[in-house]
Write a protein that binds this DNA or RNA. Sequence first.
DNA 1: ACAGAAATGTAGCCGATGCTATATTTAAAA
DNA 2: TTTTAAATATAGCATCGGCTACATTTCTGT
Lengths: 149, 149
Amino acid sequence: MSRDDLAQGTETATETTDADRFTNARAIRSTALFEDYTELIADLTEEFGEARITDIARRLGVTHPTANKAVLRLKREGLAISRPYRGVFLTEAGAAMAREVKARHRLVVRLLIAVGVPPDAAEMDAEGIEHYVSETTLKAFEAYLEGRG
Amino acid sequence: MSRDDLAQGTETATETTDADRFTNARAIRSTALFEDYTELIADLTEEFGEARITDIARRLGVTHPTANKAVLRLKREGLAISRPYRGVFLTEAGAAMAREVKARHRLVVRLLIAVGVPPDAAEMDAEGIEHYVSETTLKAFEAYLEGRG
DNA sequence: ACAGAAATGTAGCCGATGCTATATTTAAAA
DNA sequence: TTTTAAATATAGCATCGGCTACATTTCTGT
């Protein structure tokens, strides 16, 4: 099920209820962490050739056991692979998620700045906002940014 | 601690680290549910004179036990009050949160529509986005909407 | 007034996401 | 090489936020 299927809810066609919106938001909340991890692992891999648990934990501002547990979940979901005491790497699925997330992140930051948000605040807020931006909204952002050169 | 204190992180002044951003996002994630509940309770109280657990649960798309447990947390945090088998009401603190959240929600929806997001998608995405919009960004949204009449 | 229906409450389960404390393994230094 | 430091793993605890199943209370209709 894609983001936009979710975004449409389960209604026959027209109406969208409050419950649909909240259910959608809850669904996204549960994938937000995976998005953060895959994006970060991609960054670290590019920078250092691999993503070490310690680096992941430090960048996210959590302890290593927390990062380790999250990586176990990533592996279980087929988004990452790793051998004991070694670096973490993304699977193709994980890399695809990372690419998508990164593109979304950049677009959100660009749009915020375009409407006058200071760059620092834009970066800060985008970290949370990006997860909730649907394909439809993303397209609108693109169109808006196009239309103003 | 306010949203913007959080948004500044614990840095001395200038630099904002990745960890600050993620820690900020996590902090907001943990208050998002309270925001949803207070806003909804305010709505229901206005509509029906009180907020019943059943109505809260239905609008959020969760079961009553889940809503009940959340209300217990709200009460523990001093945001709501209720007597057994009776409606739920907001405290002054809860009502203040509801007002703030509602204002933020409206502004986010207006901005999304202003940049070309279809109203349906704007409503849907705002449900998640609104929680992550800082005061700074909110001010920028206001200025942007002012500046285009 | 009372029976049945509806609403609310409680108990207990689960998974996610954080933590601390304690192994264990790998890497670095003497 | 052997010791020490750093990184990683594991165990166990807590809270949150979902659920189902069941108990209790309130409301409604006859």
